[in-house]
């Protein structure tokens, strides 16, 4: 009997543990968001986090976008040439970049940079008593450390993705005109004629959600880290892995919401 019940009990414990973790993360996010509407507000910390995400992540996101656009043109040209449909390359590139690749790849790049950075910084503050020190200095750590970062994540990512969209399309245009012999004006006309406002907006909404998730996972894992250097290292890894998986999972959910027929 135990042979049957033990694995079931283990599965049950796992499910309960997962539910507890999701619940705790949701409560953490709710509390942090509630602080965005109650003074005092830490504008300086928001700007610092905003700059860290939007400005200092720009080089890595820009490079990712440019190369993705370039590769996408090459791949789609090879594929479409089999059906004499190379005229659709520009359309495919712009849709793929704005709807999917811009937000998802930028999200994954920022997850690696920012989630890790937030988790390591806040985790170190946790294990060196700096978070307790904030409380004794009459400062709510959620309001001071978490809320400004969540807001910065949600607002900075759309800007970053807007830049990534432009650079991704330009990367594609560069290869299409210089290597594949497309006429520049025709390629650009096909790009802008086919692009709709909703395509861009859906990508920016995704970016905002991903930015929030990246900041949430970084701060949550750091805030709950335990032990010393090993604990902080573990929190950093968990933050990056969890935020990356959540970005991919939420990308499906959001795409289903925006575009499912």
């Amino acid at each position: 009997m135990d042979l049957v019940l033990n694995p079931l009990a283990a599965v049950g414990r796992g499910v309960l543990g997962a539910c507890r973790t999701v619940g705790n993360a949701a409560l953490f996010a709710l509390e942090a968001v509630s602080h965005l509407f109650r003074p005092p507000f830490y504008g300086r910390l928001f700007l610092k986090a905003f700059l860290e995400i939007a400005y200092f992540s720009l080089p890595v996101v820009a490079l990712t976008a440019v190369f993705t656009g370039m590769v996408l043109v090459l791949q789609s040209y090879t594929g479409f040439a089999r059906f004499n449909a190379t005229g659709a390359v520009a359309n495919l590139v712009v849709l793929s970049i704005t709807r999917e690749l811009g937000p998802v790849l930028a999200g994954l790049m920022v997850a690696g940079r920012i989630s890790a950075s937030f988790a390591a910084e806040i985790g170190t503050m946790r294990v060196t008593d700096q978070i307790d020190a904030l409380t004794t200095l009459s400062t709510n750590p959620m309001k001071y450390l978490v809320a400004p970062r969540l807001l910065a994540g949600a607002l900075a990512m759309p800007l970053l993705v807007l830049v990534a969209d432009v650079l991704g399309v330009m990367g594609g245009w560069l290869i299409a005109t210089l290597k594949l012999g497309f006429v520049s004006s025709t390629y650009l006309k096909a790009t802008f004629d086919f692009l709709q406002f909703d395509d861009v907006v859906s990508g920016l909404v995704k970016a905002s959600v991903f930015g929030f998730i990246v900041a949430l996972m970084g701060t949550w894992c750091g805030y709950n880290s335990k032990g010393g250097a090993q604990g902080v290292g573990g929190a950093t890894t968990t933050a990056v892995v969890t935020s990356s998986i959540l970005i991919l999972a939420l990308d499906y959910v959001l795409t289903e919401m925006f575009f499912a027929q």
Partner: peptide, 12 residues
């Protein structure tokens, strides 16, 4: 908390 001060072991 406004009336309380604290010196942590490692400074914090």
């Amino acid at each position: 908390g406004d009336r309380i001060g604290m010196l942590f072991q490692n400074g914090a």
